[in-house]
Write a protein that binds this DNA or RNA. Structure first.
Lengths: 185, 185
DNA sequence: TAGTGCATGTAAGCAGTTACATGATTGA
DNA sequence: TCAATCATGTAACTGCTTACATGCACTA
């Protein structure tokens, strides 16, 4: 049982889903390819944490819809009470930023503007899902812990904020680069 | 040549260092254990990207001090101009936050307060290094791209801001949990 | 004398990515 | 007709972690 396994358990505990769907749902919060997810789901099913039913579809390929078992729910609750691992961040841009003096201003600026663009898109995507959610939940704001969409809401906020913060840092660096260039002229 | 390899190249390009020292320098920005770094350094040396000199020490074990070669510098500059990979974040807390409804308020609060404590410590550590740096650089603020400590300064700022932002999100969630509890009473 | 820091390395295993493989439907 | 989306899987490989292994100097 690794972190990804618990993540999948957490998703199916809320809504029974296919492997393909789990992959898409998990994407913004834990990057995992289908080649990692499918064998793990099979293992979780064999060990009794999940069960699946084959669902026939006419317009699309058939799918396996996984749902949590009692054993799975117990394991999930135990995991929640365990100490949480520290986050791991691996950002190539940070390593490149350390070598900024080795490159020209043009390449330096490109690095940060590309990242800003990426963050802007991601932030927009998070915001879009949040707006959809607010409309679906009959106007009730999901900021209450008892609201069914509460956890979705705090996760989306997490994603949105992270993107905003990353953008701000890049813009701050770009500002310093511009200021530095102006000084030497 | 993977990202970690370029990260190590970037560090030795600035200051020739031992494997042990590189591990410590890299720690806040790219988590890598010594068992991954030592074989990689050996490979980079064999392939001509780095060279090392054995430095004898009396009070401590001898060390291998690695420095960059011409080939290494060329490779490093090419890497800087290549498109940058998107960051990877794997945070167990986010996956746990999704399952918040499955646990009690006490465990939920513990999750976020522990993270806040961790971030506070990390932020303090980043801030401490920044303050030391400002004193060493004879009062000159390292916010200019030509300053020798400019890249260190922007990386430290990155780390500090990330910790601040993570803390704020946790505090925001804790606030919502408190508010929700008060409402149901 | 037990633990921490400095210093380097290997081996085994788990986690994650890339590539290979198949096949239907829908839209451009 | 070509690409994309849905849907599931395996194989090979790279990246990363944990554990094993050694050894000296300093400090509590």
């Amino acid at each position: 049982m690794n972190t990804l396994a618990y993540g999948l358990l957490g998703l199916v505990a809320r809504t029974p889903s296919s492997g393909y769907d789990l992959m898409l749902q998990l994407q913004p919060y834990w990057q995992a390819k289908h080649s990692q997810i499918y064998p793990l789901l099979a293992k979780l099913e064999q060990e009794g944490y999940m069960q699946f039913t084959r669902v026939h579809q006419t317009d699309r390929p058939d799918k396996k819809v996984y749902s949590i078992t009692e054993k799975g729910e117990i394991a999930l609750k135990l995991w929640l009470a365990e100490p949480t691992a520290e986050p791991v961040i691996r950002d190539e841009l940070v390593l490149k930023a350390y070598c900024l003096q080795l490159t020209d201003e043009k390449a330096a600026r490109a690095m940060f503007t590309e990242r800003i663009e990426h963050c802007r898109e991601q932030a927009e995507s998070f915001m879009h899902i949040m707006q959809e959610m607010e409309q679906q939940t009959d106007g009730k704001h999901p900021d209450h812990p008892d609201h069914s969409a509460f956890s979705d809401y705090i996760l989306l906020t997490w994603g949105y904020r992270r993107m905003q913060e990353d953008m701000k840092w890049c813009e701050w660096v770009l500002g310093l680069l511009e200021k530095g260039k102006a000084d030497t002229e």
